[in-house]
Nucleic acid binder design. Structure first.
Lengths: 261, 261
DNA sequence: GTTACCCGTG
DNA sequence: CACGGGTAAC
């Protein structure tokens, strides 16, 4: 059975709802994970997506963060509690089972700057994920971890790795924390199918002409446990063609799997 | 000596600075009073107006209210303190002497609704003006009181006087308070020269197609003591022709005087 | 630098 | 309901 998954930092679902609906029409997804929905649950524009044939699980807050999982299939909620370290009320993790796949959608804290309070929070938040996976899943299950990780894992995932090393998003402490979680049993599905670098999902719009100069970051990811990764067919980056991009936009990232029956 | 005065609720001097500069170029004013500048004094964009040849006296606060007096002549500050009742930190009154004329610029509270706390504040604020005039001026002096009064004084100053009676801006309590101050010694200079009604300075944009249907209010005023009123030549309403109006805009209101030498 | 949300206001 | 300013985040 073909299973197609996508992740997208939407930066306000209310501002980009039309764009997302168009894109969903063009791309038949089995599951889509959104980050930065920036809306309280009571204001989530569910009606439009229901009409388009989607179920959803979402967790939002006022103004910031917010995550959602959409699917045309049944979306069965599973434990979305990160516990101790990270349960500060920020809506950054949501998990559901879809077609027998355990989907975990995270919006990892951005981290501000390596010397900030928020950076340590980011590191702790990432490390807490390992306990979360340990408590709720096993590496031999079909686990799909997607989202905006706010970390570019490898040198080929940033434009100027030497210059960027130590900056937030490409910092040894982030790499170490993320690797610690990866070692639980994840594979980078996009990298599996796309060995060449400089394929980005985000551009920092505070840098002049960042898009033209392609000074991007690959910080949005699709990771999978071994049994799921080994049946992945392809993975790629996409955008909605009719949408007028804004400098802060992320791209979509997708992966396709041939699930065992 | 010809003396030309204007009043304008600018609803953010930063948003309408260019429009105002164009209008000032087209209209040679001796004094102009602004309300709702919506800017702290340290952020007041004085440089642009200085360059255009204006002096200014201004009193602002964060986000709300704020008043200013501009002139190409010397602007001599005079007492701008309303005392007890109204000195709540809201920047709503500023006064200056220009060419021997005592100019008082007020942004009278809007009043929200007749049963609200803010309405009683409005009434008290208006009444406090009589004490203010008493303490600082005399009715036989040249006193020019201008601004956004947030009151339409007469039935011909609103579109449907019967329907509007009792609404905020056309309420007996407001009329009584305003008349009490007027009785100190003011004349309505615009009305002196424009006896016909339905000439408005503001339209409430919550009403559909309010502009097309001309459902306006005359709430911006130029009032003068007898010795000044008697040398008034004309008074009229104006807009900046190139400016794309927004539903919340007020118009300019002007008056011209032939001052004794 | 630029966005999106929130708030108070009319 | 739409505007303006303020704010936090990226």
């Amino acid at each position: 059975m073909i299973f197609r998954a996508a992740s997208f930092n939407i930066n306000s679902i209310r501002s980009r709802k039309e764009m997302l609906l168009r894109w969903l029409e063009q791309n038949q997804l089995d599951v889509i994970c959104l980050q930065e929905t920036k809306v309280k649950d009571e204001d989530f524009p569910m009606a439009d997506f229901k009409e388009a044939g989607y179920q959803a699980l979402f967790k939002g807050q006022k103004s910031y963060n917010g995550v959602a999982i959409f699917s045309p299939h049944e979306v069965t909620p599973i434990d979305s509690n990160l516990g101790d370290v990270a349960e500060t009320g920020e809506a950054r993790l949501i998990a559901a089972s879809v077609k027998g796949v355990n989907v975990i959608n995270t919006y990892i804290p951005q981290g501000q700057s390596p010397d900030s309070e928020r950076f340590q929070y980011k590191i702790n938040w990432i490390k807490a994920l390992r306990d979360y996976f340990d408590s709720n899943f096993a590496p031999d299950q079909l686990v799909l971890w997607m989202g905006d990780f706010n970390v570019a894992p490898e040198p080929i995932d940033v434009h100027h790795p030497e210059k960027m090393l130590g900056k937030v998003g490409f910092h040894p402490a982030e790499h170490q924390a993320l690797q610690y979680v990866k070692d639980w049993g994840f594979q980078d599905v996009f990298r599996l199918h796309q060995p060449e670098g400089k394929q980005f999902t985000f551009w920092d719009y505070r840098i002049p002409k960042v898009l033209e100069r392609n000074l991007g970051w690959r910080i949005d990811h699709i990771w999978a446990t071994e049994p799921l990764a080994k049946c992945s067919i392809k993975s790629w980056i996409d955008i909605e063609p009719r949408y007028q991009p804004k400098p802060s936009d992320h791209t979509f990232i997708l992966a396709e799997f041939a699930l065992p029956e």
